[in-house]
Design a binder for these strands. Sequence first.
DNA 1: CGGCAATAGTTTCAGTTGTTACTATATACG
DNA 2: CGTATATAGTAACAACTGAAACTATTGCCG
Lengths: 154, 154
Amino acid sequence: MPTPRLKLDAFLPYRLSITSNMVSELIAGAYEALFGLRVPEWRLVAVIAEAEAISQQAIGRRTRMDKVTVSRAAIALADRGLIKRTPNPGDARSHLLSLTSAGEQLYAEVMPKALEYEKRIFASFKPAEIERLKIMLARIEEVVEGLEAEAERG
Amino acid sequence: MPTPRLKLDAFLPYRLSITSNMVSELIAGAYEALFGLRVPEWRLVAVIAEAEAISQQAIGRRTRMDKVTVSRAAIALADRGLIKRTPNPGDARSHLLSLTSAGEQLYAEVMPKALEYEKRIFASFKPAEIERLKIMLARIEEVVEGLEAEAERG
DNA sequence: CGGCAATAGTTTCAGTTGTTACTATATACG
DNA sequence: CGTATATAGTAACAACTGAAACTATTGCCG
């Protein structure tokens, strides 16, 4: 008897990856073209805008981005005058990042575009469906975190 | 009035990307460790197993992977003796890829692991929920394809 | 205090991925 | 037919990302 064939298209981790990459590429392309921002940079802008003043380490935890990625994005944004780095009074090794007024201005332009894209992509989804999708994604994350922890313990 | 703050955590494309990357990394790590297969290679194995004999170009279309990525994965798999490349009778530029018996054997080991991971990650999901999730992902893909086409036309 | 492990952030380096250029073949059209 | 354009696949190159090494500072514990 031949090995039964897995239909890759029906394999959920694969489907999730394909869909996510399609969405990411679409949005990343638009941001790059419109604002010269790469994905990590845009994420930093959003997180800093929410937080007012936040360390790079905290950004890494919040966004699951590597500290190297965060560092590079922070340097790029600071070079462009979009964020400023003030010494962290509690810890001389770290800086607190906040938006400059130029950064605020960019953020004010970028954010509506982001929401517009989201709206367009999910235009055919009812609010309750979107809610269900978010909850499902959160549940998946929770399980994966558990499996990661399990793997670490051996 | 200050700019209203986007909660990045509530932004669906972001959530999708985080969740998908967590799942991908988990599975990719396992495959790398267990079988020495990277993600593109594993995808090729799966697609070739389904198709029996298929050109690289067709694999690229089916998996949305770049032809360069497909080419590299195919070379790696051929070097390991997992696939064989036979001339395509209809087109001398391309090969038809198929699994060798070693490839079949590997596939027979890999596939149950894949399904097991899927099962574990979605253990708390009812079949109807999984079905809804798949449908939602398919709908998202459809919309994004439309937006891509729109962007190309200008 | 003083030394030593841990942490924030940067730099360096290696691995992966995609864009561009190239080769060989195929197809369209004069 | 034969020239021009498109396509399958590979190779060469550049960009991005993450791991490991490094620097500066912190905090623990003798």
